[in-house]
Design a protein around this nucleic acid. Structure first.
Lengths: 358, 358
DNA sequence: TTGTACGCGTTATCAA
DNA sequence: TTGATAACGCGTACAA
C-alpha cells in the first residue's frame, strides 16, 4: 500500500496483504497468512495441510507448527469451489419425531463423520425441492434417502446428476437405484405362524395411524399378511389398511367394538402397535390372553410396556453402514454396477406374542 | 469458439466459453452461462437472482426466464466465498436416538429452513471438535446447542468467534450466553404437591438410566425435589441420583426389593419413568394405586402406557422458535445485549398421578 | 522440493 | 440501469 517494491514475489505479497487489510471481512487465518509467516508459498502450505507428498520434512514441520499457532483451518467454501467437491452428504428422511427416522440419522452420522464428510439434514418437502436444486449445483457430494418412498422417481426426473450418487434405505425396493432393503417377509410370516399356532380365530392387520406414508408405496407387510392368509385359507381382516384415511383411536375403538377384537393383531409398525395396545386396554382386553400383538421397527420403548410388546427388527445398524458404504463406492466411481443389498428382519418375540395355547 | 467477434463484450464471452469447454469439470449451469444466453453480464444476472434492486424489469424477466430454462442454481460455495456467509447453521445436540433431542432438531429444522438457512447436524464428540475448527473459518453462520451442558465453556475457549453467534437450548442456564431455558421447578413442585396430598409415606427421586449426561450439570429437577422435601420436612430419598454409576433395571429392582417401593416416584425424565414402570410391574406393584409415577420431557409414548403416564412438558416448540429468533438477531448484529428467555414447563397429569386418596 | 499462474462461480465496488 | 474489474481462499498444472 505504501511503497511499491520490485520483484514479482513481493508484488504479489504486497497485493495480498493490501487486500487483506483493506476489507476487514473475516478474521480467519488463511493459507496466505501461514505461508507469509513460514516464508513459503501458499502451495507449500496447501500441500502440507492436505498431507501431500513432496514436501521437505523440515518445511513440513515448520509449516505445521505455524499453522497450529495461527489456528489455521481450511475454508471449506474455497476448497469446494476449487475442487468441485463439498464433503457434504445430504440425508433425506422422514420427520425426526419418528424414532425410526431419527435412529437412521443417528446411525448414519458417525459413519459419515468418520469418513470425513459432514451431514446435511433435509426432511421437509420445501427443503426437498431445495435439495434437488442444491444438488444440481455442486453443493452436495451424495445423497442418502431414508423412507421417502416416492423420491426415486422425483430425483431421476429432476436431477439426474444427483440421482447418480444416491442410495436408498428402504423397506421397499427401487429398481435401477442403489438401495439397501429390509426384507420383512420372513419375520412377518414367523409372527403369523405363532398366531396361527395359538389357535386364534381371527388374525387382523392394522395399518398406519395418522401419517399416511405414501399411497404409491407397496406395503410389504400387508402383502405378506395377505399371502399367508390366502395360503392357510383364512379370511383376511384389514383394519384401516387401505390408506384412505389415517387411523384414529376412535375409529379403531369403533371397529373393535363392532366385531369384538380379533385374537391376534399384526401392526404395520410399533407406533401403531402401541396405540392399539392403548385402545385394547381401554376396552378391557388382556394381552396376550385375549389378543396377541406385534409391531415392527424395534422401537426401544416396546419392551417397557406391560406385557412387553413384540416387534420385528430390521438390522438398521448394518443397513445404514452398508448404505454409506454403497454411497462411498458410488461417489468414488459413478460407473460401477448397481449396488443392492437385502437384509432379513428378525422377529423379536416378547410376552405379547406368547400365547397360553402354546 | 468458432468465430471471434469484435467488441469488448464478446471478447470476455469468448474467454469464458473457452475455459468452460476446456475443463469438463461440473456440468452445472453458471451465472456465465445464463449471462451469455441473455446477452448481459454476470453482474446483471447476479442481481436478478438475488432479487436486488436496480435492474430493468424487461431485463429481469428475460434473465429469469433463461435462468429457469437453463435450470440455473447458484453455487453455494462460490457465493460463500464471495460473501463470507455460508447460510449454514450448525445444530449441536445429544444423540438423536433420544426423542428429546430428535424432537428439538425436528422443531428447529422448519424454522431454519424457512429463513433460508440450511442445517448441519453435529452430535458426536469427534464432530464437536471439527465444529469448533470449522466454525473458526467461515463455514457456519451460527450455532444452536441443545443439551450439551458443558459446551459453553469449550466454545468460549476454543472459538470466540463462534461463541459470538451461539444460542443454547437448555434445561439449565449459562450466564453470559444467549439461551432459552426451561424452568421445570413449578411443574416439579406441582407434581410433588399431588404426591404429598395423596398421603404417600415415601416420595423418591429417580435419576438417569444408562447415560450420565454430565457431571458438571446442576440437576434442576433434583434440586427442586430436595428443596421441597426440606420445606415439608421429609427425608429425601434418592435412587441413583448421584450420577456415579448409571441406573440399571437390576440396581433399581434391588433397591425396590430392599425397602419396598416408595409410594411416589419423581423421575428425572420419561425414559427413566418408562423403565421404572417396567420394573414396578415386574415386582407386582400397581400404578397409581401403589406407586404414583411422573416423568419429564413429554415423550409421546407416555400416554400409550396403561395407566397413562404423567409427565412434565417444557414448551419445546416455543423454545426452539425463540432460540432461532435469538440466533437470527445475534447474527444480524453481534453487538446486541444478551438474549435470555425462560419458559415454564407444565405438568401433564395423567392416571399415573391420580391417587385414590384425592 | 518449491514456486508461478490461473481458474473455480459469485459478489462488491466503482465507473459508465 | 448496466458493465468492467478485482477479490474471496484454495487447488491444479506445469515450470523451475
Amino acid at each position: 500500500m505504501t511503497e511499491v517494491q520490485g520483484g514479482k514475489r513481493m508484488t504479489t505479497t504486497n497485493k495480498i496483504r493490501k487486500s487483506k487489510r483493506e476489507d476487514g471481512r473475516s478474521g480467519a487465518t488463511t493459507l496466505q497468512d501461514v505461508a507469509q509467516v513460514a516464508g513459503v508459498t501458499t502451495m507449500t502450505v496447501s500441500r502440507v495441510i492436505k498431507g501431500a507428498e513432496g514436501v521437505g520434512s523440515a518445511t513440513r514441520e515448520r509449516v505445521l507448527r505455524i499453522a497450529e499457532e495461527l489456528n489455521y483451518t481450511a475454508n471449506p467454501s474455497a476448497r469446494s469451489l476449487a475442487t468441485g467437491k463439498t464433503g457434504v452428504i445430504a440425508v433425506v428422511s422422514g420427520s425426526l419425531n419418528h424414532y425410526y427416522y431419527a435412529n437412521i440419522v443417528h446411525l448414519l452420522e458417525p459413519e459419515i463423520a468418520a469418513s470425513g464428510y459432514e451431514m446435511r439434514l433435509l426432511n421437509t418437502h420445501r427443503e426437498l425441492k431445495a435439495l434437488v436444486n442444491s444438488t444440481k449445483s455442486v453443493s452436495v457430494d451424495g445423497v442418502i434417502v431414508a423412507g421417502r418412498y416416492n423420491l426415486a422417481a422425483q430425483f431421476r426426473a429432476l436431477a439426474p446428476q444427483v440421482f447418480q450418487s444416491c442410495v436408498f434405505i428402504d423397506a421397499s425396493r427401487h429398481d435401477e437405484t442403489d438401495y439397501v432393503h429390509a426384507n420383512l417377509a420372513p419375520a412377518v410370516e414367523e409372527a403369523l405362524e405363532l398366531m396361527l399356532k395359538s389357535g386364534r380365530a381371527r388374525i387382523a392387520y392394522v395399518g398406519h395411524f395418522h401419517q399416511t406414508i405414501s399411497k404409491n408405496m407397496p406395503e410389504e407387510r400387508m402383502r405378506t399378511y395377505l399371502d399367508v392368509m390366502e395360503r392357510v385359507e383364512r379370511v383376511p381382516e384389514l383394519v384401516n389398511a387401505d390408506s384412505g384415511i389415517p387411523l384414529t383411536p376412535e375409529i379403531l375403538m369403533q371397529a373393535l367394538k363392532e366385531n369384538g377384537a380379533p385374537g391376534a393383531l399384526l401392526c404395520v409398525n410399533d407406533e401403531t402397535a402401541m396405540r392399539v395396545y392403548r385402545v385394547l386396554r381401554d376396552l378391557g382386553y388382556r394381552i396376550p390372553e385375549d389378543v396377541l400383538l406385534v409391531g415392527c421397527d424395534n422401537l426401544p420403548f416396546m419392551e417397557f410396556f406391560d406385557p412387553q410388546l413384540s416387534t420385528i427388527a430390521p438390522p438398521m445398524k448394518e443397513m445404514c453402514a452398508m448404505a454409506w458404504d454403497f454411497l462411498q463406492q458410488r461417489i468414488a466411481d459413478p460407473t460401477i454396477p448397481l449396488q443392492q443389498a437385502t437384509f432379513d428382519a428378525r422377529l423379536i418375540v416378547r410376552p405379547s406374542l406368547l400365547s397360553d395355547a402354546l
